[in-house]
């Protein structure tokens, strides 16, 4: 199975046999991979009915719902890992979603497109218009990504919420980036826990 590059990173970060909640799980590609390779006990939440039908048809336990509204109903500590891949920027209340993730699970793994990437900065500087890139293909008025942030913004929010960053992987395409991160990474994956 071919996984999106951030999903590959996330899959590597999930411990074997973990209880996993994938928030915005799409058609269940990541959960199916984690079930096959890591033997996880996986659950998903997904907004699109067609995606849920596809995930359930794969034998996955996926609930159609809206993470902004539904995460509050999950009991605390029910999962080892909560995953939010490429979805944070579409949440109405990203801070509440992150807080719920570390309440529901011991560990939160979050991937998001970096709005601080040099192409985005250059596009805005040069054209004076909201950037349209491979990672952010929709025009500003049609994008589901209503809360875009940079890597630095995200780190600020995590600190503000009292979260501990346990690990971070920075990607440009499929390659890992190791310096000038907020300029060169077009995606980031963070592993967070509740601060002590």
């Amino acid at each position: 199975m071919i996984l999106r590059s951030d999903l590959k990173v996330i899959a590597d970060l999930v411990p074997a046999g973990a209880r996993v909640l994938d928030i915005g799980c799409g058609d269940g590609a990541l959960l199916a991979e984690l079930r096959a390779t890591k033997g996880v006990d996986g659950r998903g939440i997904e907004l699109s009915g067609a995606n849920v039908a596809a995930a359930v048809a794969r034998g996955l336990a996926v609930v159609q719902g809206d993470a902004d509204a539904d995460l509050a109903d999950y009991p605390g500590g029910g999962f080892d890992v909560a995953i939010l891949s490429d979805t944070l920027q579409a949440m109405r209340d990203p801070a509440a979603v992150l807080a719920n993730m570390v309440r529901i699970a011991r560990q939160a793994i979050v991937s998001f497109p970096n709005f601080g990437h040099w192409r985005v900065r250059l596009a805005l500087l040069a054209t004076g218009r909201m950037p349209v890139t491979a990672a952010l293909p929709a025009p500003w008025h049609a994008t589901p990504n209503i809360h875009l942030c940079t890597i630095a913004d995200f780190a600020d929010l995590a600190a503000g919420l009292g979260l501990t960053i346990e690990a971070a992987v920075y990607l440009c395409g499929a390659r890992e980036v190791r310096f000038a991160l907020n300029w060169r990474a077009d995606q980031a994956v963070f592993v967070l826990t509740r601060g002590t």
Partner: peptide, 18 residues
Amino acid sequence: IVHALNAAGAAVSFVELD
């Protein structure tokens, strides 16, 4: 029903079909 099953820790799938 789904909220209750989640709260009970049950493995639940839910879909609203058109």
